[in-house]
Design a protein around this nucleic acid. Sequence first.
DNA 1: CGGTATTTTGAGCAGTGTCAAAGACGGTGG
DNA 2: CCACCGTCTTTGACACTGCTCAAAATACCG
Lengths: 235, 235
Amino acid sequence: MIRKLETHATLDRRDREAIRALPHHVRTFDASAYLVREGDSLQHCSVLVSGYAFRQKVTGDGLRQIVSLHIPGEPLDLQHLFLDLADHNVQTLTRAEVAIIPRAALQSLALSHPAIGHALFVNMLVEGSIFREWALNVGRRDARTRLAHFLCEFAARLEAQGLDGGRGYELPMSQEQIGDALGLTAVHVNRTMKLLESEGLIVRTKRRIDIPSWTALREVADFSSRYLHLRTKAG
Amino acid sequence: MIRKLETHATLDRRDREAIRALPHHVRTFDASAYLVREGDSLQHCSVLVSGYAFRQKVTGDGLRQIVSLHIPGEPLDLQHLFLDLADHNVQTLTRAEVAIIPRAALQSLALSHPAIGHALFVNMLVEGSIFREWALNVGRRDARTRLAHFLCEFAARLEAQGLDGGRGYELPMSQEQIGDALGLTAVHVNRTMKLLESEGLIVRTKRRIDIPSWTALREVADFSSRYLHLRTKAG
DNA sequence: CGGTATTTTGAGCAGTGTCAAAGACGGTGG
DNA sequence: CCACCGTCTTTGACACTGCTCAAAATACCG
């Protein structure tokens, strides 16, 4: 499972052994639990074994911006692997199992095994790319496009990770949280959601999102998966 | 000069030698020249020797979002060091000198010299942190705060880089570009700029920005330099 | 000195936010 | 199995920030 993420980006040989040998323990967190708080000095990194999580920062007057989501199988704290003080919060979205790894162990592994270092570099850079796309999304697209884009990204990433995804998926977030991710109000998310639904671009069943026509949604969303740097096809 | 950036984050020994020995050549670009275009497959990375540059992405219907700025001395394309296709554009802001380094050379250096690898990791992660802060800025702060925050970031980074900064600096951007960085219109940037000026938070002389009271601006801007992960004091 | 890019200003509009309240849902204890 | 609660989702009315369009005033450059 831990290994899976590494291969997400680059092929290793029996570096896998080294990774599997990493000291770690798995812990379960409830929904909404904080894994990292801004200002913490970090001693370990983690990998999401199951469940969903997200990163967020809050403004001086309490407004929250979700900066990225994490789906099962993704490493959670590479972003802080080489930084000493957390600059944002990491929180679970649902109940989740997290593999916790001492930072030092992963650091030295990264620096001593070129292939692993490479994989980590790639992983970090892809995350960086996702941050950039979010900035574009939040800064320059209107609510409808923005939401559609968000839904596309989630679908694409789930699929790339080998989970369901493509035609539909369960979106484990409240509209309030979606709003925080998009820089919108929960109320407006609701309206926009219904708009997309009324246009036939998505079908909602509770929190499940189904996508009748990927190309149609993708079109409206101004979505291109390039920034995800997937090795698979899709688009 | 190239070395300077590496030390920005972490101390090296005579890894510096290795860095200085990197094959490279310096090239001068005009203002607004493209260094990288989205979709390019990259063969080299670069370091800004002098001048300013920025990264941007554009929306399907031509709206542009500037995702980050680069000041003299910063490495420019670490973001793509281990990714094959560019996911955004890199452009000069002013006439600039750029040191161009073959990607492969830097890659192997990063993977074979732990200290250098470490420095690069840190550099990438700090950039990532800046992206996150931009997302927060653009997504959750109103125009006034957003602009003030932007001005603070620029000041803090200039200062950290040992350039002027602190009390005032030359902002090498048109209001149109500032707008693209903040997700605002040039017109609104203008109004907001004048607002900050009328409040005595900044003093403008052409494109020069002077900051009468750092604490006052910092306050309004909801700015904390934590996310820049500077090793210096400031705040 | 003319021509072009940038900064200012004004007036009116629109996309989102606010505030409030009414459903829906899902879980809990009896 | 049901009533009760707290959390989400919906809806409506209305306000406001930031956008558009346009044109005037400046600044910059050869």
